[in-house]
């Protein structure tokens, strides 16, 4: 190990009263390959935290640790601790279903199920045992309103989700995640497949959502991180280089590598 991590110093710069996640010395392996290297950080509640870095820096992996979705990949292993609500979510005895109800996720490419708009949003509540047309209708409407999609789709809830445009599909996926009433919303480059107009809508939505949810958004788009997030973490080769309030990180980066990245010397 040549690189050394500086958890204490990094951490001192984000002071959250009750952080949503406390990440402690998190490392992650795909077989022999070490993809995350001893990451320690607190992710504050009801804020947007952006994780940025060049492709392959481990930012998507980091997100998949937070809801244990990495488990589906053979040979993947995480060490360290990640605390959420007084539970270490890396504990093998943890109920992952309960975890994923608390921690929703939105993916790079919009991935609605091949079902109707209504059934897509109702999917989560249904698998968690919510029955009854009226109750489901209520949840679906609320989620679609939260995702700023209701007005566009309220007359065609029975139509296939694939009839929607890419940006609408992504907002549908956000609604689908919100319908489960999570505390946290993980977003993995949610606009990388969208055009600028649709991107703007999603970004606006992300800002609004942070009033009720903790949002962790992965992006390789600097402007996006600057526009939507309260705090930004910069990851490079699996190492947390710098983590600070967004404005501070963008204007007065402490680490020369962050500065190099911001001025476009990597990418």
């Amino acid at each position: 190990m040549v690189t050394k991590t500086r958890p204490v110093e990094v951490n001192q710069r984000i002071e959250a009263e009750a952080p949503a996640f406390r990440v402690r010395n998190l490392s992650f392996f795909y077989g022999r390959e070490k993809v995350l290297k001893g990451i320690t950080m607190d992710i504050p509640r009801h804020r947007v935290t952006a994780i940025m870095g060049p492709s392959g820096c481990g930012k998507s992996t980091f997100l998949r640790v937070l809801n244990r979705l990495y488990e589906r990949i053979p040979g993947a292993k995480a060490t360290g601790e990640v605390w959420l609500d007084g539970e270490n979510i890396l504990d093998p005895r943890l109920d992952v279903v309960a975890l994923r109800r608390k921690v929703g996720m939105v993916f790079q490419k919009p991935n609605p199920f091949p079902k109707s708009i209504f059934d897509n949003v109702a999917y989560g509540p249904r698998i968690h045992g919510v029955r009854g047309r009226r109750k489901l209708s209520f949840i679906v409407e609320r989620a679609l309103r939260q995702a700023a999609l209701w007005d566009e789709v309220k007359d065609k809830l029975k139509r296939s989700a694939f009839d929607l445009s890419g940006g609408q599909q992504q907002r549908l996926c956000i609604a689908r995640a919100l319908a489960v009433e999570p505390q946290v919303l993980l977003m993995d480059e949610p606009t990388s497949a969208l055009d600028p107009a649709a991107t703007a809508k999603i970004e606006e939505l992300v800002r609004t959502l942070s009033q009720g949810f903790t949002v962790v958004i992965v992006t390789h788009n600097l402007q996006q991180a600057a526009r939507v997030s309260h705090h930004t973490a910069f990851l490079l080769s699996g190492e947390l280089v710098e983590y600070a309030p967004t404005e501070e990180l963008f204007t007065r980066p402490k680490d020369p590598r962050t500065e190099d990245y911001l001025t476009g010397r990597f990418s």
């Binding site: 809801n67 979705l69 589906r72 992952v96 279903v97 309960a98 975890l99 994923r100 109800r101 929703g104 996720m105 993916f107 991935n111 609605p112 199920f113 091949p114 999917y123 989560g124 698998i127 968690h128 996926c173 689908r176 995640a177 489960v180």
Partner: peptide
């Protein structure tokens, strides 16, 4: 599709 379903619990 699978990831989407798993992520919803």
């Amino acid at each position: 599709f699978r990831e989407g379903a798993y992520a919803l619990g």
